[in-house]
Simulated assay, not measured.
Amino acid sequence: MLKQNKIKYIGYYYSPELGQPKRLYSPAAATKMDYVASTLVQNDYDVEILSLCKPEKEGIVFNKKTHHHNGYTINLIASLGTGNKLRNVLDYFLGNLILFLILIFKTKKNEMVFVYHSLGYGKTITLAKQIRKFKLVLEVEEIYQDAVTCSTRQRKQEKNNIMAADAYIFPTYILNSELNTSNKPSIVIHGTYSIQKNDSESACTDGFINVVYAGTFDIKKGGVYAAIKTAQYLPEIYKIHILGFGSDEEVKSVESLIKQVNDSSSSKVFFHGLITGKDFTDFLFSCSIGLSTQEPNAKYNETSFPSKVLTYMAHGLQVVSVRIKAVEGSDIGGYIHFYDSNRLELIAETIKNIDLQKITDTRDVISDLDIKTIKKMSNFISSVTQ
């Protein structure tokens, strides 16, 4: 079996630290890729991320250099840029062609290639694997057909892409049981187990209990709206802070709802928009409770893991979450404050029942998971290369 100390890791990855031109990316996906890459680095692997992110603005972009970031290298694949429909189609084929050629000419038989599951390049990966016979380690964060509308062809292709893998990284034990029916090598990593250090004077001293929702404003998921409306059932000692991202229409909808709630509630809601980097870290350290409010009956809840839960815990926050199997049956399920339905009164009651004087430091829980995961990754890689 091939021995290697280099691993290619494919995904839609970007970091603002990489500079201009900026690329479109999912912060949650990039954060998870950062963590997986860090566990590989700590196991003495040289990681190269191949990213297919498109530029934020129109225009052709070529990768003129290899970036060095967080202990690994990043190559941003050339792009024709976003714009009209024709350019988007051509860019899709260009990115996949470049990726295919890299895999064909720069991988070897039995070499491990890590891939963040995506419909955007899944077929290309599968075809290259059939030719070069590399070991495909597929990181499946969710089943896309559970979260978005997919055609019959896309559903079939997604299933084929997943089944083609030699090993898996899953965010939940449920997803492992559902997809890994052949009992291939696998590892469950719920999210990012990197604790944050409080280097600022961000602890709240204003006498209020600060509660935060940080995440998507997607109306289909509904979590932000439940978080805002919960203020109607909380006393004025609580403040709810809304951080996150969405379309212009979704942002306006969130701001409008906040105004309505503040006009009639003792507890007040504050809108902060998208905050990143150190500002985001400092802000979370000024809060005590994090909300993981979302639609409890949505199909994606059965398999995906809400990354915000671990983000809150990494900053020492207590987490209030709807009771879903993926979280309850996880390695951190015993440290979460669950509610059982989206009744606003029940969410508020769960928040009020948290005794902030008698709590576990959630950063200790995350730190312990980090140590265990680095060791598990070593064992996982050994099982893949056997």
Rank of each mutant, 00 (worst) to 15 (best):
S330C: 05
F283L: 03
I324V: 12
G95V: 02
K133F: 05
T385G: 14
S202Y: 01
T276D: 06
V309L: 10
K352S: 09
L90Y: 10
A298P: 02
A203D: 15
Q4I: 12
L138N: 13
F100N: 02
L76Y: 09
I209W: 04
M377F: 11
E158A: 03
K129P: 06
N198L: 07
H69F: 15
Y45K: 14
L127K: 09
T31E: 11
I98N: 08
I162Q: 00
K375T: 12
S182C: 07
S118N: 13
H67F: 15
D199Q: 03
T39Y: 06
K299C: 01
F114S: 06
V137S: 13
L119N: 11
N353P: 02
V137R: 04
G95A: 06
F270Y: 15
T311W: 01
I209Q: 05
G11S: 11
M1H: 14
S341L: 01
L76Q: 13
V327T: 06
I371H: 12
I104P: 02
L97T: 15
Q154S: 13
N110F: 09
I131A: 04
K8Y: 15
I187E: 00
L86F: 13
N43I: 07
I374S: 00
I219F: 08
S15A: 14
Y12P: 00
L179N: 03
E302M: 06
Y193L: 02
D146P: 00
E48F: 13
S177G: 04
I381Y: 07
S151C: 10
T281W: 00
K325T: 05
Y173A: 05
K54Q: 11
K220Y: 12
E178W: 04
R343L: 09
G334M: 13
K372W: 00
S330W: 00
S177H: 03
I228D: 02
V148M: 13
G246F: 12
H315P: 01
I195M: 05
I347P: 03
D340I: 00
K109I: 00
N63I: 01
I289S: 03
R323A: 11
V269E: 07
F105P: 04
N210H: 14
Y168F: 14
L119H: 08
A167H: 04
F62E: 11
L90D: 01
I60A: 10
Y193T: 08
A298Y: 07
L369T: 06
Y339E: 05
I125R: 06
S383Y: 09
N198Q: 12
E139I: 06
F170M: 08
S292Y: 02
S304I: 06
Q145A: 11
K109Q: 11
S265W: 05
K135A: 08
L274H: 05
P27I: 06
P16S: 02
I169K: 05
K358H: 15
L138Y: 07
N43W: 08
P296G: 00
E345A: 09
Y233G: 05
S267L: 05
S330K: 01
T293S: 07
T230M: 04
E111G: 03
G290S: 04
N110W: 07
G120F: 12
V140F: 11
L18I: 07
N297E: 13
P16N: 08
F93N: 10
A128N: 09
Y9R: 03
G246W: 06
I354F: 08
G333N: 01
D263K: 11
K220A: 14
S267P: 01
S186V: 03
Y72F: 15
R87A: 02
V254E: 09
